[in-house]
């Protein structure tokens, strides 16, 4: 194996991304979850910068900057404030216990690599081998949303999924057009603000952020 330096670097960052995704899957404390989320965003920024530098795609610098501001600084800051305001530090309960979740996660990663193998053969980018990791991290964050009970951790799952999508876009096609990226960034921002408002209302109504209270909302 004699890969170019940049490719090795990107592969390393991709591996870190996947590792962080697993770490988030196992993490029970919400505060650490947010820190992990910020860290994952930072890894994403690094990998985007490496891709931008090595392929001379100047617009990727902008999206790296955008990611840095939004996902590494602004959103975690909002989350921290929210946690303090709502006073929820713990997310003890998961629906499935953590070892079982890990096993399902491993199955998902294998599935994702299988899925990505034929596609990455056609991709002409230097990042082609990371497509499997991107898909895997999307599926893992989805899994996190399913297994968690507290509304906050579900929102973090949602944002992590967006990280995975962003990584997939960079690795498959050197990123999406700037307009689309800006649009998604705005969506994420507005989405998390709305989530924040909802948290307060959910807690006000049920005196808890546990989402099983929402089960009463169905029709019959």
């Amino acid at each position: 194996m004699n890969l170019p330096f940049y490719t090795q670097l990107i592969n390393l960052l991709a591996a870190l991304l996947l590792l962080l995704a697993f770490a988030m899957l196992t993490q029970r404390r919400i505060l650490s979850l947010i820190n992990l989320f910020a860290l994952q965003g930072f890894v994403l920024v690094l990998s985007t910068l490496v891709v931008a530098y090595s392929t001379h795609q100047s617009h990727l610098y902008y999206s790296a900057l955008l990611t840095l501001i939004l996902k590494v600084l602004f959103l975690p800051w909002i989350m921290h404030r929210l946690i303090h305001a709502l006073n929820v530090r713990w997310d003890v309960e998961t629906l499935i216990d953590i070892p079982a979740t890990m096993l399902i996660g491993i199955v998902l990663v294998i599935f994702a690599f299988n899925l990505a193998a034929p596609i990455s053969q056609f991709a002409g980018t230097i990042t082609k081998s990371t497509l499997g990791i991107a898909t895997a991290s999307i599926l893992l964050s989805f899994l996190m949303m399913i297994t968690r009970r507290k509304a906050v951790s579900q929102v973090i799952g949602f944002l992590t999924m967006e990280n995975g999508l962003f990584f997939a876009a960079t690795s498959a096609t050197y990123g999406m057009p700037m307009v689309v990226e800006l649009g998604i960034a705005l969506d994420v921002l507005v989405g998390s603000l709305i989530f924040g408002v909802f948290f307060f209302h959910i807690r006000e109504t049920f005196e808890s952020l546990d989402i099983h209270h929402l089960e009463k909302l169905k029709e019959r």
């Binding site: 629906l95 899925l115 599926l139 989805f142 399913i146 929402l214 009463k216």
Partner: peptide, 25 residues
């Protein structure tokens, strides 16, 4: 199908996603 549990709804989308990915392959 409407259980009222968000996890179940998420599971529906997850399974649909997996199924679609398998098909696309």
């Amino acid at each position: 199908l409407q259980q009222g549990r968000i996890s179940i709804y998420l599971l529906y989308s997850f399974l649909t996603l997996i199924a679609l990915l398998v098909f696309a392959q």
